[in-house]
Design a protein around this nucleic acid. Sequence first.
RNA 1: CGGUCCGUAGCUCAGUGGUCAGAGCACUCGCCUGAUAAGCGGGGGGUCGGAGGUUCAACUCCUCCCGGGCCGACCA
Length: 1140
Amino acid sequence: MTPGARSTPSVADEVFSMAGQSQEPLTLSPAADRHPLQAPPAQLDLPAVELEILDLWARRDVEGRSLRGERAIITDGADARQDFAFYDGPPFATGLPHYGHLLAGTIKDIVPRYWFMRGYNVERRFGWDCHGLPIESLVEDQLDVHGRLEIEALGVPKFNAACRAGVLRFTGEWERVVRRMGRWVDFENDYKTMDPTFMESVWWAFRQLWDKQLIYEGYRVQPVSPALGTPLSNFEVAQGPQEKDPKTRKEGHKRRQDPSLTVRFKLEDEDGAYLWAWTTTPWTLPSNLALAVHPEVEYVKIRVVATGELAYLEPGRLAHYQERGRVGETEELARLRGADLVGRPYEPLLPFFARYRAREDGSRWAFRVVTADYVTTDSGTGIVHQAPAFGEDDFQTGQREGLPLVQPLSLNGIFDDSVGEFAGLFAKDADKKIIERLKAEDKVVDQDTILHPYPHCYRTDQPLLYMAISTWFMTVEPLRERLVEHNTKIRWVPDHVGSGRFGNWLANARDWNLSRNRFWGTPLPIWRCDKDPSDMLCVGSIAELERRAGLAPGSITDLHRESIDPITWPSKAGGTMRRVTEVFDCWFESGSMPYAQNHYPFDAQKKEYVERNLPADFIAEGLDQTRGWFYTLHVLATALFDRPAFKNVIVNGLILAADGRKMSKRLKNYPDPAGVIDSFGADALRAYLITGPIVRAEPMRFGKTADDTTGECVRDTVRTVILPLWNAYNFLVTYARADGWEPSAAALEIQPTGALDRWILSRVQGFIAELRGEFEAYNLSSLVPCYLRLCDELNNWYVRRGRRRYWRGADEDPTDKHEAYATLYRVIVTLARAMAPVIPFFTEFLHQRLWVDPGLASEGEDSVHMMPYPAPDERLRDQELERSVAVVRQTVTLAMGLREQQRLGVRRPLQTLTVATPDADARAALQRFEDDVLGELNVKQLALTEDDSSLVTLGAKANFKVLGRRLGKRMKTVATAIAALDQAALKTLFATGTITVEGETLGEDDLLLVREPKGGQVVASEGAVTVALDTTITDALRREGLARELINRVQNLRKQADLDVSQRIALLAFAEGELRATLEQPELAELIKREVLALSLTLADEDALRPALDGAPGFHTAEDRVDGDRLQLALSKIKALVID
RNA sequence: CGGUCCGUAGCUCAGUGGUCAGAGCACUCGCCUGAUAAGCGGGGGGUCGGAGGUUCAACUCCUCCCGGGCCGACCA
């Protein structure tokens, strides 16, 4: 076989090109070409296999049948034909999928596949999040229009048309990658948040809330990007420019120089006295309505000697001003607490809102001293200027104190007419003019600049302004109790997210600001009278809107702003009902998807289906969705239906680059996902992603080492996860074909008699039970480790020990051979079905080769994913047998360790292995598997004994677990005494069953025996088992060892010559010394011939092989030395003489 | 600043009161008998982040601290 003969070379070629087996017709097995098991591919090219499988799925419409729930086989009795409800969280398709999406997609594929195999119908519809700022930002760049004013000038119809055209730009690429990962999800019957049906359901949901009086209009202080003319979410703020310096680093903040202004406010109730307050935002001073002090902080009243001015401030801050020489000599007049200042009135700094000085009843309203706990003394004066419209804290204070809301700025940061000469100025530009005027009026105490971190717009890089914005809220706070209650019914994986992060968030849930002042989103369905703002109504459906607006039924086909905003009708007050301008927070839309994806409740056919599938059985997303999708789903389900939205949720963590940093396109610190799939296959990537802490919401580094940027970690996964199963399959098929064994449905029902077969089948049952348990607990991270344990048992014990059973001659009884084939076949087929949800491609390959190709598949069994999930067969469980084999393997490992230690290669036979153990079960197990022990260790004889006293020194240790509880404080003393017990004392214990130590009477269970190998012998001990190896080598043993060496050299030569496993050969050998003597010994020569399939073995003189060694055709040759003696070998093929 | 998770071998992670703290990778030494060198095994390597506390006994439980991640709050 020529390596690289394939047409699509890939990185994988280097890795997976097989050593190459002969593809010549099998000389000894004329029926082989018609064998129902196809020959395994000479090279395992996983990516190529996966592409073929994708093609097969498409040809047979397997995916479609699964998604539609069409299947021929119903299993699991009561489970059959029920729905397993899965919700897919919609991604934005404004970029390409990255590893986070691939991980979430894998989880969202594995779980539904499992439940489908369990007999449930699982609808899996892909969702697209179409609205929101990401796409709007892209379109702003594309059209080169920025900010609300420019967009309005361009026109909402044009802008939204561009959004609509652009938002699905990458969906084709998404679909390609998602499919290549093996995820089965319905892209044809998908849902998009911009579909009119979806949007109408969003309206319906909102109307329900409206009718339940859960919607109100309010204000919230938000960061506003004046250039964009829009408030930003915290998420957007965090995307802003960021300082590199880790000390000053703060998300979305960078340093900025601002004015640092200290101004004096004249007290109305004390002549010549002022309150000094500090600000870095002079533009908020026209809107000042109060001054805040901390009630517990001490303030001073001072006289400035030079001017005679009386002033109040915090003394520590005064010292600060004086240090910098900003205030001359002062004289302290009094000390008082902040609380003492509360309520004192002062004159408005600027006259524009002086009308708020008193309420209509004459009581003091604004321009007075209030308290605030957040006042600190580490900056400013200890007295804080309050403009309730321009800061979260100020706003809260204003609410508490009943202050009015003075907001002279537009969303673009431009002052309106209410502020005199500052009207029309941009806020930051007004700083200078305001300072000028205050200076002219002698109201400035100090002027400086300050360099501080300040949030900037992520798009325009301009400083953000915090201001109170009118918004629409959903009442959430009174629902807290129900939210928390419903949360207790959700299984979170890991559970701490539910009880911790999510639970705490619910317990402190704040009202939800649902509205955004944007363009491309579902419009809020509120129409309001332009004459009487209190006249509002909420529209709950398209039909209702048509009716109210007097439009023909069916005339409204789209619900975006450009279609809806022009719809108006006369109001009662003689004005016009117009829609408010806001659109929904797109989280409201994704949270509505359980209803909206099925046009609930408008689609009569799906109404009952939606209600039946609420809550979902399963959802999965990243940890970042805790306050996102998870929350919005939960809030809406609680508010609308008083139910949780989902029953089980897997939360995955963040995938970091191998260097521990975030994946960064710029740094190129991670491999391209498509490249990784093309090189190593989707199965390996899937297995890699779901094994580890990442599926328990912890971060994971994508890489084998810190500098792994090529996906080496996934290559390792191929090696550890796929190849073991491939090797087992390859073994089975190679020998079944050579041997003429054919699979049958009956093989899957085999109840073998041999212990080894029954052992592996028992293990398989345990494995299936374990896997099912993990699936049902949604513990995906243990699936692959469980499977790897079984692979180890299969390959490194079952097949290894059973090898020769597959190669029995025609003259022997075939019963055992057939049981061996059938058992191995059963194991591999079962394994493929059990792991199908995790590695869907390779298991499908096995299913096709082992089940479909041989014609065993019944109707509807044409894919492994259509098969019922394996159920453990308790009749095959034999835990005692499993324990026995465990003892045998442990013993073998111990003895192998001794061989290693003594540098005695396994090829050299030894006479006796002694195993001494008082454990009768262990001895019975070793007796039962004596052949395996002898064969594995290449030892002639196994000696079992109960008495290990000649091999080990016995000591004892306290059994803490048992004794601790009983002895309490005396534990330590007794434990020390136990450790000091001598052999004689232990003999007493064995004889009488009890022993007295430190006045305590102890039984055998209270002590643990410790065995220490005695010196001068080849002994190892673990637990109750002690092994001793007799290392005496007799002449006979040495000769047999040499024969094994010869066999090994010939086998290597066979492999080197690329011979088929059943190829017969003629062998020519020259050897010196004892090696020659070995070859001359008839029974050893026979052994060699038998083992290497040599029909003749000719011992030659030194020069006889020369022509062959020099390259005579038809010979394969080798030269070597064994124990110092020279050896020359030459073999040639013998064609089809004998049928085995 | 608050919430939450994490800190165990060079790296990635198991281990959740009890006897000698484990696995994989890497390293190193060796083995490979008729599937697999794409395999199998031996070994070295750890003050279990630190300090207190509870307990007969702490990697494990509690408190505080340090470091990291994520989420959130604050920033006149």
